[in-house]
Computed example of a mutant assay.
Amino acid sequence: MSAAVLAKFIEDLHPAFEAGDPAAAQKSAEAACVGLVQDQYRAVVRGDFAAFLVSMAEDIELENIGPPAIPFVGCWRGRAEVAEAIRRNFSWLEDQQPEVLTVVAQGDTVIVIARERGRFKPTGRAYDMHWVQQFTFKDGRVARFRQVFDSASLLDAITGPNTSQPAAQS
């Protein structure tokens, strides 16, 4: 992971939250939640899992939604289980290059929509996918994290391109 690419991704979150909303400056609760999301990403990037754990509620729930062939699809509960899942899930990927597309925040919920390019470590194959992450906060900590990603490119990186489909007709 390039430190500059990841720093830009994290810094782009707040401007994306403000984009297109002239009243964004008055949304202090939502801005605070976006700031907490940025802090979480920063902790993960620098490998500071102690700070990352403190940002989560005791009963945190992590859910990655996608096809079962993707090794980091699943649901985990509690700080220790979630922290281990995140460490393991990141270990599958390398050369991650996330790009913020949109940030939406309402009350205690932040939605981040992004595009990410990188490689699946075990195969060395590249992927280029979009993902949506939903953070729900309770008492200033993440209580629920849900991620959904388009999976075709990631599945190709894991298993190889799907060659069972007929070739396009000219």
Rank of each mutant, 00 (worst) to 15 (best):
A3D: 08
K8N: 08
K8L: 05
H14Y: 09
A16T: 08
E18L: 13
A19G: 08
A19Q: 14
A24R: 09
A25V: 07
A25T: 10
A29I: 09
A32N: 15
D39F: 03
A43K: 05
G47A: 07
A50D: 12
M56W: 07
M56V: 02
I65S: 07
I65K: 12
I70W: 02
C75I: 09
C75S: 13
G78Q: 05
A80I: 02
E84Q: 14
E84H: 10
I86Q: 11
R87N: 00
N89E: 11
S91N: 13
L93Q: 11
P98F: 05
E99P: 00
V104S: 08
A105W: 08
A105V: 12
D108M: 12
V110M: 10
V112S: 04
R115M: 00
R119H: 09
D128S: 12
D128P: 05
W131V: 00
Q133G: 07
Q134I: 14
F135T: 07
V142E: 04
R144Q: 08
R146T: 05
R146Y: 01
V148Y: 01
V148W: 03
L154K: 06
A157D: 09
T159N: 13
T163A: 12
T163P: 02
S164P: 02
A167N: 12
A168N: 04
S170Q: 11
